[in-house]
Structures are given as C-alpha cells and as structure tokens.
Computed example of a mutant assay.
Amino acid sequence: MRHLSLPPHPARPARGEPGPDASPPVLLVVAHGSRDPRHAATVHALVRRVRSLRPGLRVETGFLDFNAPSVTGVLEGLAADGVRDVVALPLLLTRAFHAKADIPAVLHEATSRLPQLRIRQADVLGPSPLLLDALEQRLYEAGLGPGDKSSTGVVLASAGSSDPEAIAVIAEIAREWRRTGWCAVRPAFASASLPRTEDAVRELRAEGVRRVAVAPYVIAPGFLPDRIVRGAREAGADVLADVLGPAPELARLLLTRYDTAASAAAVTVAMSA
C-alpha cells in the first residue's frame, strides 16, 4: 500500500491568541483627561492624524479622568464588538506615576472583568528623536530658524513630576538636544520639581544668552501648560513655542510604539503555536 504524504497541519495559535489572519490589535490611546476643553480637543485631533496615517487600523481614545469616554467604557465596548486584542498606549511623555500605577491598575481591573480581552500596555512616548523633531518644528513655527540655534538658549519646559526617573529623563533629553546645536538647553518644570520656567529663562539671561526660547514639552493645553506660558511671559522669553499637539511627528511616534507592542505579541503567538 502506498502511503500518501500529507502536508503538515498549520501551526495553531495558543488558546486565546489571534490566528495569522486575525485583525491587528485595536490601538487604544489612553489620555489623562482635563477639565480644560482644549485638552480633549487636542487629543482627538492627534488621534485623527494617527487614523489618517494608518487607515486600516482601528484607533480608539479613552480618558483616565474628567473626559468621556473612560478607558473602562471603551474596553467594555470593544469586548461587546468581539474585539480580542488591544494595545493600550499611554499618551504620556515620561514614565511616571500614571504609566507605572494608574494605567496598569485600570487595565488590570478591566482584564479581570473582561477575560476575553487581551490587553497589553505599550511604552510611553518619550524619549524619542521624533519628539525632538517635533519640539524644533514648534520653535520654527514660533519664528526661529535653523540658523538661530547657535545663538539661542532653550528652556525645555515639562509638566513636572515627583518621580526621580521622569525628572532624570527630562534632564537627559535636554543634554541630548543641546548636542544638536542649540546654544544651551535647560530643563524646567511646571510642578513638583525645580527650576520653574521663569527661573530657567532668567538663568540663561544671566549667563549672557542672547535669545531665549521656551519649548513646552507637553502634548495638550491645560492647567500646567498654562503655567509654563505664564512663566515664559513673566520672565520675558523671546520665543514661546506651542504645545506639541497633533504634530505629525507625534502621530508617527504613536504608531511606532503601537507597532513595537503588536510585534512583540506576534512573536509570542509564534513561539506558543
């Protein structure tokens, strides 16, 4: 009797894992939220830009506080739609309390109630060369040009944090940005840490820097970004850039973080098949 040689069965994904033809994970952008309506409007504008860059990807937005829809509400809706795989991406520039505690707690609670959902938390956005590109573009939009770098000192003004890791990251970003040709780059903080924006501007003036610019290292307007603006104006900064907002560089960075998380999941599927 002749034995037929049958092709091997295709590898099956582990239970609960998506198959090779499954839809890509949904991208859930997790924003902090604010009572200031400009915050949510800016977040939604950024998410629209992300969707325009990746039309086939489902992108949702959830807020931790103040705004709707909530992260939990979005996840419940996704589960009801039959979605099984979600990448939750913190709309944060540093890995501080919200990324380490708030967001993991919300996602863990949702996973326990919605076991059909596989939820993974992507990395925060910073640091990244794309963020430096976005910061420089905002400064150029405010009136500077590449030829002004050697005569301009920049205050890198962030919201601030009590987390030493986050503060160290901001300081390192300032050092890295200085190496691209700016006369000086100094970190400043709107809360929790020192120096304040106005103090950093005055320090640069005292050191003889001819032109001082303030670059807010924040994504959307709100209470702390407004404090940065007031400090810059109070100290007489020559140039004040806008927040990062829906910058194209920021939209590309969101997709980079998403792709990294989604690819890591794909490797896990292949190994467990």
Rank of each mutant, 00 (worst) to 15 (best):
74 V>Q: 02
29 V>L: 06
25 P>I: 12
92 L>P: 01
117 L>Y: 15
116 Q>F: 15
38 R>L: 07
119 I>W: 03
101 A>G: 01
55 P>T: 10
73 G>D: 02
92 L>I: 03
44 H>K: 04
81 D>W: 02
100 K>W: 07
115 P>D: 05
124 V>A: 05
123 D>A: 11
53 L>Q: 11
56 G>A: 10
43 V>R: 08
60 E>Q: 15
129 P>L: 00
116 Q>P: 12
44 H>T: 09
111 T>I: 14
41 A>E: 02
108 H>K: 12
110 A>E: 01
49 R>T: 13
110 A>H: 09
105 A>T: 09
73 G>Y: 15
107 L>F: 08
70 S>Y: 14
85 D>V: 13
63 F>L: 00
71 V>H: 03
77 G>T: 14
96 A>P: 06
59 V>I: 13
73 G>H: 13
48 R>N: 10
26 V>A: 10
104 P>M: 02
106 V>K: 08
84 R>A: 05
89 L>E: 04
99 A>V: 15
55 P>E: 06
32 H>M: 02
76 E>R: 15
112 S>E: 11
31 A>E: 06
56 G>I: 12
59 V>M: 08
80 A>V: 13
82 G>F: 10
86 V>G: 13
108 H>S: 12
64 L>K: 00
35 R>E: 07
98 H>C: 00
35 R>N: 10
99 A>M: 05
99 A>W: 00
65 D>I: 11
32 H>L: 04
25 P>R: 08
37 P>H: 09
113 R>K: 10
122 A>T: 15
67 N>Q: 10
85 D>F: 10
78 L>G: 08
89 L>V: 13
68 A>T: 11
114 L>T: 09
107 L>M: 08
42 T>W: 10
88 A>D: 04
129 P>E: 12
48 R>D: 14
107 L>R: 02
101 A>S: 14
76 E>Q: 14
93 L>C: 04
96 A>D: 05
27 L>F: 04
57 L>H: 06
49 R>Q: 09
120 R>M: 14
60 E>A: 10
68 A>N: 12
50 V>G: 07
130 L>C: 01
48 R>S: 15
79 A>V: 10
38 R>A: 03
33 G>N: 14
54 R>H: 15
82 G>D: 13
114 L>C: 12
121 Q>K: 11
129 P>I: 05
125 L>Y: 08
86 V>K: 07
33 G>V: 13
117 L>M: 14
113 R>P: 13
39 H>P: 02
76 E>P: 02
99 A>N: 01
115 P>E: 11
104 P>L: 05
30 V>C: 05
45 A>R: 03
96 A>G: 02
72 T>F: 03
77 G>E: 13
128 S>C: 05
61 T>C: 08
82 G>W: 14
63 F>C: 00
31 A>P: 03
42 T>N: 04
96 A>H: 06
94 T>D: 00
31 A>I: 05
40 A>R: 09
117 L>E: 14
65 D>L: 00
25 P>L: 01
94 T>G: 01
34 S>H: 10
49 R>V: 00
102 D>N: 06
84 R>T: 15
